Amino acid sequence: MNTRLILLPFVGCLLFTTVAAQRPKRGEKPSAGQETSETAQARLRFVEPTFDFGTIERRGGDLIHEFEFVNEGTSPLVLVRVITSCSCLKAHFSKRPVAPGERGTLRITYEPHKREPGVFNKVIQIYSNSAGGRVVVTVQGNSVDTDRKTKNRN
């Protein structure tokens, strides 16, 4: 039998055990000079990850909501990129680092006139240097055309 086939899994297990033994256990603080990337990271948390605009007039103008977030990590947090699920959403955010424990805002502008009337649920993806990398927030509501309602009543 080929000794390479027998030794390969053994060496792999030995390597894994050695690396795992050098990591601090969950809940255990690393010793001095052993701070890991897990412990020195920014952590993005949105205070309110979903916002409901309620029932709105489709031609009533743009709607704005500011999502507040906090950096719960130990390193500065930087929002890198924000992707919206449709052209009816615009996102505005600062690229300045948010210090640990500090708060920031993500401003969302929803343009209901660009969509058909009805229930909507839009997704905003936020990419940052946070642990996990990507966070999702949503806006929802129901846009109506009051012109159509009056025409149907007559």
Rank of each mutant, 00 (worst) to 15 (best):
M1Q: 06
G12S: 11
C13Y: 11
L14A: 15
L14D: 10
L15G: 12
L15T: 13
T18Q: 06
K25N: 06
K29Q: 04
A32T: 14
G33N: 11
G33M: 07
T36V: 02
T36M: 03
A40P: 00
R43T: 13
L44T: 12
R45G: 07
P49R: 10
F51G: 01
F53H: 02
E66V: 09
E68N: 05
F69L: 06
T74G: 01
L77W: 08
L77C: 08
V78D: 03
V78W: 06
V80E: 12
V82M: 10
I83C: 02
I83S: 10
I83R: 10
T84R: 07
T84A: 13
L89S: 11
H92T: 15
H92P: 03
F93C: 13
S94H: 04
P97Q: 02
V98M: 00
A99M: 05
P100C: 00
P100W: 00
R103W: 04
R107N: 08
I108Y: 04
Y110L: 03
H113W: 13
R115K: 11
R115W: 03
P117Q: 10
G118Q: 08
V119F: 04
F120S: 00
I124H: 00
Q125E: 13
Y127F: 14
Y127R: 13
N129R: 10
S130N: 14
A131W: 14
G133L: 12
V136I: 06
T138G: 03
Q140V: 00
N142V: 04
S143I: 04
V144W: 09
D147F: 15
N152V: 13
